[in-house]
């Protein structure tokens, strides 16, 4: 505990410096904010269009489907705030900047996260937060204390599942920077298929999105538990309800994998 607060104080100072550094490129800064807005807005437009044209997906009401999209997108915004720089790891490795992290007296993973200010996350938060507020206002739930606590846990869990997936993939980038295309592809899959009840897809696909790329744990399972749409989940309800805990376990596992991969890091030139 003695070192915890100074570590956070130092991290906040570095965040402040990276923020000032980004403001040196004012146009790029505002474009990164706009990037978050454009990214999230494009997903919202796509999702709402499909919801309007094809109501009642898999027996879910439109409000419940909207809640899936809202939880996923706000969880993604939190991921961008706290963990999004793992997506830039391939660039850091390829340009040799990563090697300097190994010489500094700070955990390497933390240095990766502090390497740039997440200005795009500002746009993500704005749109994700707005959609979440709209979904909460629209859905017919009593919002008992346990439901409020569970939705907060679900958002944190969704953030951790996404962080686990991309941290695990970035452990590959430490050795093969060009493997970043797998991360882009995985992100595209999560964006395209993460906003709907996965039960509308064939069993083999929803199973893959549960056990291979754990997309179901990001928003689908928690919202299913919250809204009572627990038929046809493909896993016991208790497992679906434990999605936030599974997210925490997955992230811890991905960090173990990342640290192991780091011990074998040799740089892009061998």
């Amino acid at each position: 505990m003695r070192g915890f607060l100074p570590a956070w104080a130092l991290a906040l100072r570095v965040v402040g410096l990276t923020f000032r550094a980004q403001l040196e490129y004012r146009g790029e800064f505002w474009m990164r904010v706009a990037l978050g807005l454009a990214w999230q807005t494009s997903i919202i437009v796509f999702a709402t269009v499909l919801l309007g044209r094809f109501p009642g997906m898999g027996g879910w009401s439109s409000d419940a489907v909207l809640m899936i999209a809202a939880v996923r997108m706000l969880g993604h915004a939190f991921y961008e705030v706290f963990f999004g720089r793992v997506g830039e790891l391939a660039v850091l490795v390829q340009e040799g900047r990563f090697d300097a992290f190994l010489l500094r007296p700070l955990p390497v993973y933390r240095q990766v996260q502090l390497s740039a200010f997440p200005s795009n996350a500002l746009g993500d938060l704005l749109v994700g937060g707005s959609l979440f507020a709209w979904a909460v206002w629209s859905i017919e739930l009593e919002w008992a204390p346990w439901q409020i606590a569970y939705i907060v846990a679900a958002l944190v869990g969704g953030m951790l599942v996404e962080a686990a997936v991309f941290t695990a993939l970035s452990s590959l980038h430490l050795h093969f920077p060009s493997a970043i295309t797998w991360s882009y592809w995985t992100e595209e899959l999560m964006t395209t298929f993460g906003n709907y009840p996965l039960k509308i897809l064939p069993g083999v696909i929803s199973g893959a999105f549960t056990f291979v790329v754990p997309l179901a744990f990001v928003a689908y399972f928690p919202v299913a538990v919250l809204t009572g749409n627990t038929a046809g989940l493909g896993v016991p309800v208790a497992v679906a309800a434990a999605a936030p805990l599974i997210g925490l376990a997955a992230f811890a596992g991905s960090r173990v994998l990342w640290n192991w991969s780091l011990t074998r890091y040799t740089g892009v030139n061998g």
Partner: peptide, 10 residues
């Protein structure tokens, strides 16, 4: 702009 990665993504 010196940097354009965001413009490309947008």
């Amino acid at each position: 702009t010196i940097k354009n990665s965001s413009a490309v993504d947008i």
